[in-house]
Nucleic acid binder design. Structure first.
Length: 272
DNA sequence: CAGAAGCCCTGAAGGC
DNA sequence: TGCCTTCAGGGCTTCT
């Protein structure tokens, strides 16, 4: 499940493979993923040099010397592979890189997306225009979050999944952050008191995950070259029925459904 | 208008 | 073993 840390890990893994290199040939093996690919995508990618590899929220931004940027979203099951293997099932786009590397976009469930847009208009792309602040950046702080929460009648769990409030959190890291902050996920966003601790733990949980991804990235590159899916140990996510890991807490992790998504939390210590 | 539910899609996992 | 059902969730669309 690629959330911000996974996408950042993919970005860091692809950087040495792509940056400053030319796409010798782009192979597009189907019409699209969630939406159709842009017109003539293969032609527009072939021959282009990658001038920079950036990230906005959960989107990878591949800047090209053609003046266009390739926007990539991994959706739910999307992954990037660096390998010599011949394209197989669910390998939808293959980039042959000058010098021999091969980067493959694989996405079994096809919830991912790719689009091309002029580089100076990237942040006006419909999918990026309304995104909230980057949680690891300076624009994300207690004042901004308090303002965004003001008057909101949805549970704080749902509010944190809203990409216009803060961009890049997904179901897993929202659960982890609320647990670290001791906040009840059912609490209405507009009724949460101080968010200072919440801001701090959101930054922490994302930074920790990026660090963990970075360390496992080296191992993965040595084995099968797959970027993006890593073993993380979660404190609450997926731990229904197990003992809470908060020091001194004797609670048991519960699973509830909010806005159609599973929320894992400890009713004993998440009481703020 | 805000908030919640529906939808897309495939593979993994669990029940019988 | 194998078939069937349920679940996973990012983010847009539709409904209330």
């Amino acid at each position: 499940m690629p959330e911000l840390p996974e996408v950042e890990t993919v970005r860091r893994g692809l950087q040495p493979v792509l940056e400053g290199r030319r796409i010798a040939q782009a192979l597009v093996r189907r019409d699209g993923l969630r939406w159709p690919f842009p017109d003539r995508m293969a032609e527009r990618l072939t021959g282009a040099m990658v001038t920079g590899l950036n990230r906005r929220a959960k989107y990878l931004l591949v800047a090209l010397d053609t003046g266009e940027t390739l926007i990539i979203h991994l959706g739910m099951s999307g992954r990037m592979l660096v390998s010599d293997a011949e394209p197989g099932k669910h390998d939808h786009v293959v980039l042959e890189i000058e010098g021999g590397a091969r980067v493959t976009f694989n996405d079994a469930r096809r919830f991912g997306m790719m689009d091309l847009i002029e580089s100076d208009r990237v942040h006006q792309h419909p999918l990026l225009a309304d995104l909230g602040p980057e949680p690891l950046g300076n624009d994300f702080n207690a004042l901004v979050l308090t303002t965004a929460f003001a008057g909101k009648k949805s549970p704080i769990k749902s509010a944190l999944l809203d990409q216009t409030i803060v961009a890049g959190l997904g179901n897993i890291y929202v659960c982890e952050a609320l647990w670290r902050a001791g906040i009840n996920p059912l609490r209405l966003a507009g009724e949460v008191g101080s968010v200072d601790l919440l801001v701090r733990v959101i930054r922490e949980v994302l930074s920790d995950a990026i660090e963990a991804g970075g360390s496992s990235l080296r191992d993965h590159r040595q084995t099968n070259g797959e970027l993006g899916y890593f073993q993380h140990s979660f404190s609450v996510y997926g731990r229904e029925g197990q003992a809470c890991r908060t020091v001194g807490c004797l609670g048991v992790i519960e699973r509830i459904v909010q806005s159609g998504r599973s929320t894992f939390w400890c009713p004993t210590c998440q009481i703020v």
